[in-house]
């Protein structure tokens, strides 16, 4: 469960989050959409503790964030850009993160097999292709079986096959009762993966509710059309 109250954050003169209230119950799959620079990544980074909000409170599983760090044991995060130390090998990176988290991996083998990372394990991260690096990121996010999963533009660099496998995996996590939060610009992907949609515009939440409701309200068949309509409405 993630509870956010009156979250405000600015970088210099640039007000990125302008007072956000949000509650994401456990076990819900939520997609965050919004134009570039609307504050999606800043919102996720605030929940992860990478960004310190100016004001407002964030609670993750009833732990109030204030430089706390243990709550992240329950969080897996797959970043938008995956860059790792160049001359580290893939299995060494996995070992390093295992030691950092001090947790035993639950799905390490399973995920490596699913994403076909087996032949890449001995390679150094420098020679890995962008897609394979994304897969390494996805594996790191899910292998400790955390209750909350964040994916920031997860399928941007994946080939169709890997992307399909990734989505299958996320659906599986959903079935197992995980809280899943995904940001993406690919609306068809969100349609497949999430049940609830948060639409952020200009640092504020413009819509938060179920996917069906959103489509109905805007009299659209597809998410893409509904979002486009909402963006037009807020401009006029």
């Amino acid at each position: 469960m993630i509870q956010i109250e009156q979250l405000v954050k600015s970088f210099g003169n640039n007000k990125v989050l302008k007072g956000m209230d949000l509650e994401i119950p456990s076990g819900q799959a939520t997609g965050i959409v919004g134009p570039n620079g609307s504050g999606k990544t800043t919102l996720i980074k605030s929940i992860l503790g990478l960004v310190r909000p100016d004001s407002g409170t964030i609670r993750v599983n009833d732990v109030k964030l204030n430089g706390t760090w243990l709550y992240r044991q329950n969080i897996g995060y797959m970043p938008q850009v995956a860059r790792y130390p160049e001359n580290m090998k893939v299995f060494e990176l996995f070992d390093f993160i295992k030691g950092l988290r001090d947790q035993e991996p639950v799905f390490e083998r399973e995920l490596i097999e699913q994403f076909q990372l087996g032949p890449e394990l001995e390679k150094s991260l420098r020679v890995l292709s962008g897609g394979n690096r994304q897969k390494v990121g996805a594996t790191l996010a899910m292998m400790f079986d955390p209750a909350i999963l964040f994916f920031d533009e997860p399928t941007a660099g994946l080939d169709p096959r890997s992307s399909f496998k990734f989505k299958e995996r996320v659906k599986e996590e959903k079935r197992r009762g995980k809280t899943v939060v995904i940001t993406s610009h690919i609306m068809s992907e969100l349609e497949q993966l999430v049940d609830y949609v948060i639409f952020i515009l200009d640092g504020k939440i413009r819509y938060y509710g179920s996917m069906e409701n959103l489509l109905e309200e805007n009299k659209e068949q597809r998410l893409e059309g509904a979002i486009a309509r909402m963006m037009e409405k807020s401009e006029s």
Partner: peptide, 16 residues
């Protein structure tokens, strides 16, 4: 050089 890596490490359960 290790910007993204440090960011990834900061999302793990360790203190800064």
């Amino acid at each position: 050089q290790s910007r993204e890596f440090v960011e990834l490490l900061l999302t793990q359960p360790i203190n800064r």
